[in-house]
Each structure stands twice: as C-alpha cells, then as structure tokens.
Design a protein around this nucleic acid. Structure first.
Lengths: 338, 338
DNA sequence: GAACTCAGCTAAACGGTTTTAGTTTGAGAT
DNA sequence: ATCTCAAACTAAAACCGTTTAGCTGAGTTC
C-alpha cells in the first residue's frame, strides 16, 4: 500500500522554508514565534491547496499525545454499552478526542490484552468497565501516571476514578416498590460474579428484606455460562419456589432472557408474578406488559466520565484525590410491577 | 503525563547489544539474521522480565502499518450496527487487527471528518457504511491505494468492494409473503434517502406490486428528521389509507417506532394490519405479537468483510477487480404477518 | 558599536525498522 | 605456521514525520 502522503518536508522544500516554520504556522504559533504574516498566509494557502494534513503517528511519537481515549466495555452488542458508547463518543468528539473501543466479553485475558494494546498505541486515557482480576494491571496504569476512569463497576482494591450509579439504593427502591405493592415473596435473579455493581444490587435487595422481614429467594446464575444455564436454572427456581409473587432482575439480559422463559411457561405478568428489571431499554419498554425498570442516567454519566478524564489530561498528572461518584438512578414504573 | 516506558534502547543498553539485534529477535528474524540462539533467548527472557512492548506509533511511523482498521457506521447505538460491529471486531481481533469505530449519524460532514481522521491516524483499511455525498472522498482513498470495503449500502458512482444483502429480493419476498397471505393493500414505510439499500428495498416492493397488480401505498419519512416526523406522518398515512391491511417497514427503527404508534392507536396486529420489518432484533422477536422480519446474515457478512479487507492488505495494493457481493437474507416468519 | 528585535533556521529528539557495513572465528589451503 | 575466506554475528547509521530548544544573521535603536 503506497503512502504517498505529503509531509511537512515536502512543504518546506516547495516553499523554501524550514520544517520549523511550517510546524509553527500549522500549530497556530506563528505570532508567538514571530513568523511574518505574509509567510504564514503563504504557507496556509499552500497547505490548503495541496490538502496536507499532519501525520498523527509522528506527532504522537514526539508529543506523547494521541488525542485518543481507549474505552473498554463488556460487550458492545449490549444496548446498555452501545448506548453509553454512543454518548461518550459524542462528548469526546466535541472535545477533539477520538474513542477506540473494544469488548472484553467478560474475559479477563481479553481485558488485559486490550489494556496493553491501548497502552502500546499510546492512548491518552482509559475508560474501563473492568472484569474481575484486573486490579494489578490498573494499579500499574495508575503508577505510570495515566488517566483512568472506571465505570459501571469498580475494583475495591484499586484507587481510581469511578463513575456509576448508586446500585444499592436503586435496587432497594425497586424492591421497595414491589413490597409497597403488597408483594410478599420477592425474588432476586442475579449472577454469581463478584462485580461490585452486582454485589450492591444484591445488597439493596437484602436491605429491603431485612427492613420488611420478608423471606429471601435468590437465584445466582453462573456468570461464565449464562446463555446455557439461565433457562434450566430459572425454570427450576420458579418451580421450587412457588410462593414467589415478584422478581427483581439484576441486569437487562437476565430480565429479557427470563421474560421470554416466563412467557413460554405461560406465567402471567404481573398477575402471577410482578417484575422489575435493571437498565432500561427498548425491549423492556415495548414488552407487553411494559417492564418496570431502573434507568441509569446515561447522558450524565457520559458527561462526567469525559469531563473527569479530560480534566486529568489537562492537569497532566494523576490527581491524588479520586472521584467516586454514584449517581442516583430512576425507577421507570410500567405495568409489569403493578 | 510521564511516559516512562522502556524502549528498545534501554534493552540494548542493559544487555550490551545493539538495537538492531533486539529488533530482529523481537520480530522473529533472529535465525534469518543469524543471531545466536543464546543471545536470542537472553533477550527474550529480559524482554519478558521487564515487560517491554513495542511502541506502535514508532513502529507505524516507519513501517506504514498500524494493524488497525477504521470502521464507520451510521450509529453504534443501533442494534444492527452494534451487533455487526461486535462480530467484525471479533473477526479482526483473531487476525491481529484492531477496530476503531465511529458513528456518522447519517451526517456527511461527520463522515468526511472521520475518513480523514482515520487516514491521519494511518489505519490500514476502511470499512465504511457510507452516507450520501461521500463518493469523491472514497474515490480518492482508492486512488491512494487504500483498502476499502463498503457495507450495508454502496455508492453507485464508486468502484469499491461491497458486502451487503440482496435487498430487492429480500423485500420482494417479504411482501410476497404478505400477498400470499391474502393481503390486498400492502403499504411500504421507508425514508426519502437515496441510500442504495433503501432504493432496492423499495424496488422489491414495487416489483411485487407490478407482478400482482396490487395498489401502491408508500410513506416516505424525511430521513433527516425521522424522530420528529414519524409519528405525525405515519398517523395521517394510516388515516388517509384506510384500506391498508399490511405494512412492510424498510428499517427496524421505522418498524419499532411505528409499532408503538399502532399500539397507541389500538390497531391490532395482525388482525387489522399485518406487519413485516427489516433487520431482525430482540425487540421484534419479543414484541407481542412477534414481528416477522428480514434477518441479515451478520456473521457471514462480518467474515466476508474482514476476509476481503485482509486479503487486500496482504496483497499490498488495491485489486482492480472489486467484489460486489449481495448475500441472501432470510425471512423469519412470526405471528405479525399471519 | 553594543544591545535588541525580528524572522526564521539547525539539529536533536521521539522509538522503532532496515540497510549497509563491519568484526570475529575457525576451517581449509598453501 | 601462516594465509584466506566464508560463516556467524553485531554495530552504525539512515529513515519515518513531527515538535521544539536554541541559535543566527540582518536590521534598528540609542
């Protein structure tokens, strides 16, 4: 593949100037560096004429900046992530930054590879939805003075910025909504992963049980094998706990998968069992009946994440004080929980 | 932000060797360059110990390769694109390539900026879902001998690889399915954009009308303002065409938006109006009734796209003969069209 | 004519790859 | 025992396209 791109050298040669001069003019330092207006204009005109654009690799090599942010999500195919990705991309774009994203699919090895790949490519900052077992690598990134924001979940042993929601409270309120509706046997369907957001959601559920004295019914589907295990595990859970009159789902994929199973089992929602899901999306909204769901403030999160990252980048060093922000979520009440 | 990364120079200094030697060993040219096995081993061991990884910017600068592919989609928030993005990412990853993606949101200016940005960053190849008005820029990319694959839609005036589906036939068959079911007034809801896939889908619809002699009912929602216009336009379309007993939607967002409107209007599907959508997804599958939809072979498309691109990259130059592949789509029949 | 401005240039990075040019070694020839 | 020459190995240097610290030479000013 030929790369016949025009470079600064070509310009300086053609115009009988030095690279320095061209570079200064192109970077708006003409005045500061006392380049005459005529020369500046001539250069700018020529640059426009030949359509020169700078080579980012070369620039990045010397400046150490690439104006790129690496974004590691669990799965770009999941609407929650693709929506926030869309918003983050937009925010970053407006500030002159580009996003490179990639999915871990929950796999630690892939996540490690991605972090290293981003580092090798010299991204300026990292937005990471961490998998388990990433603590050491992220600590090291911090030691290397890189800007990082964790989101959706964090790593308790790692000091780093984190933007997420108050999962405990969100789930507490979702369950309370069910309890207030007179439900007596509220179940929780979650995974067995140690991810903080999942732990918190479970904690919110448990707090409500404690306060109300209701009985606990928890199904933990193996995180590494959800696709295979959800159906059998959920079906036997329902059969073995016939008193259940409401279910909170800890994630949207658990909710959607289970809703389909319930439909096949002819369980009527909300007559037999009321339902609340986590992370709103179109499927839940259009499901019949509409599914009550906890909605995360995606725009706000996207903005906070980017602002935080860019602030750190501007400061040029990792701030000692890290932000740990948990935004409030909103319960969108639909027919499924009434 | 400090970049205390270890470089080849550090290694050569520490080991008392030259950069050349290190580079050769790292790039597997040790034997070819007759470096002794002991030295090679020592270097490899040291590299592993200090955790050195090469700087891609520097490497890219000299080799002209970045092992990165730029992927331009319409909107990463759209499930169709996020799903194929996920698949393409996986395919590329397996071949040692990384994907940078970005959304145009259908805007020509953004698309142009993205193409230029990718070029400046030295991506090795481009996967583009083009907006209108991109012909000139893409032609130029071809002239610069860059590897490009268009997908989902193409630009009639541009010679370039294209991977998509046979939209005309897919829509023809979807409509035929409705006609075979006895529908007499089949409507088509599409946009007014000139995108080839939309044109073809409309053509498929029209072919069926011609063959069957049925009457045409077409609603074209303004592409640039779908969010605002879909509701009023669709409602008046339905009111002004009371004979309609079936509707084909040209995209999933038109379908989903309209389904919601129909539900609010208490139009019963399929009793009053049968429905067929384009691009299957979870919403359509779980909608009640399940929505019949044209499903694109995403895995196959992803594979073809990446294979094609990597082949071109391997050849090192743009092949004269371009591939224009239209895969068959599959109609998934659900209750909405029965 | 010393000091100061201008306006622009030189050259050294940045971190690699690749080409060219050596330097040892040791085996065989003389 | 010395010489030659290929084999085996390594070093030096050029280069990729930028940025940037430090310099220079010409014209003013006082």
């Amino acid at each position: 593949m030929k790369r016949n791109r025009i470079s600064i050298k070509d310009i300086s040669k053609a115009l009988g100037l030095s690279n320095t001069t061209i570079s200064f003019i192109l970077n708006g330092k003409a005045e500061e560096m006392r380049i005459s207006a005529q020369v500046a204009e001539k250069v700018l005109a020529y640059v426009k004429e030949v359509g020169y654009t700078p080579n980012y690799l070369a620039r990045g090599l010397v400046t150490g900046k690439t104006n790129t942010i690496g974004f590691i999500v669990e799965s770009i195919g999941n609407p929650f992530f693709s929506q926030i990705a869309s918003l983050i991309e937009e925010q970053a774009y407006n500030s002159g930054y580009k996003i490179i994203y990639s999915s871990t699919n929950g796999k630690q090895e892939k996540a490690l590879e991605l972090i290293r790949m981003f580092r090798d490519r010299g991204v300026d900052g990292y937005i990471i939805c961490p998998t388990d077992g990433l603590a050491e690598e992220i600590k090291q990134l911090r030691e290397e003075n890189r800007s990082i924001v964790l989101f959706d979940r964090y790593l308790p042993s790692v000091v780093a910025h984190y933007i997420g929601i108050d999962n405990e409270r969100a789930m507490y309120e979702a369950c309370k909504h069910l309890a207030d509706g007179g439900k007596k046997n509220i179940a929780m369907v979650t995974t067995d992963s140690e991810q903080t957001q999942m732990i918190s959601r479970l904690a919110g559920y448990q707090r409500l049980l404690k306060e109300t004295g209701l009985q606990s019914h928890v199904l933990q589907v193996p995180y590494d094998d959800i696709k295979q295990r959800l159906q059998p595990d959920f079906e036997s859970f329902i059969k073995n706990n016939p008193t259940i009159d409401a279910i909170c789902f800890a994630t949207n994929y658990l909710a959607i998968g289970s809703l389909e199973i319930m439909r096949n089992l002819h369980i009527s929602i909300p007559d037999q069992i009321s339902v609340v899901a986590f992370d709103d999306n179109e499927v839940l909204r259009l499901f019949q009946p509409g599914i009550t769901a906890v909605e995360q403030p995606l725009e706000e999160m996207a903005k906070l994440i980017i602002d935080r990252l860019l602030l750190d980048l501007k400061l040029g060093k990792v701030t000692e004080k890290t932000v740990h922000k948990e935004l409030p979520a909103r319960l969108i009440i639909r027919a499924s929980s009434l």
